[in-house]
């Protein structure tokens, strides 16, 4: 597998082409705007809560394949999870994007999300992958601040 194929894995290209949960939620409890000024990625994340559970989640926006795929995979993964599980997952994904090696437990937790690890070799692209996750963290922390990767 060439380095490019390692970045643009099948699962990432698939989520880019057919993003899941790519919709505005009319009844969202939390709405977060995120931007990546470097490449112009723009994202709006909608989260509907039921107690401490993420009952529904959606996103709209424009961005590169990494940004769209990461947003799509994130929403697919955390829909139905608890707020604590979502925040825990943010930490693990953040470690995956920032560090080189993860232990078995972390890799098990990531599952399909480990496909995003290819961006580590592309420092200018890490922010594309992390934008949606920062938006998620902000939403789950009940902050109304907008998110910028700068």
């Amino acid at each position: 597998m060439s380095e490019l194929e390692d970045l643009y894995r099948e699962v990432i290209l698939d989520h880019n082409k057919n993003p899941r949960n790519f919709a505005e939620l009319d009844d969202a409890d939390r709405t977060i705007e995120g931007v990546n000024p470097l490449c112009g990625d723009k994202l709006t994340l909608y989260v509907k809560l039921d107690g401490d559970r993420i009952a529904d989640i959606g996103f709209k926006g424009t961005g590169c394949a990494i940004s769209v795929a990461s947003s799509s995979m994130m929403t697919e993964r955390v829909k139905g999870a608890t707020i604590d599980e979502g925040l825990q997952l943010f930490d693990t994904v953040h470690r995956m994007l920032a560090e080189s090696e993860l232990d078995e437990t972390a890799l098990m937790e990531l599952g399909k999300l480990a496909a995003l690890s290819g961006v580590r070799e592309y420092p200018s692209r890490v922010k594309c992958a992390s934008l949606a996750w920062h938006a998620l963290k902000t939403a789950l922390n009940d902050s109304t601040e907008s998110v910028s990767t700068e």
Binding site: E3, L4, Y8, C39, C64, A65, Y122, S124, R125, C128
Partner: peptide
């Protein structure tokens, strides 16, 4: 997206 093109061309 232009950003993806930039990365692929760089390689």
């Amino acid at each position: 997206h232009a950003h993806d093109l930039g990365t692929i061309l760089d390689r």
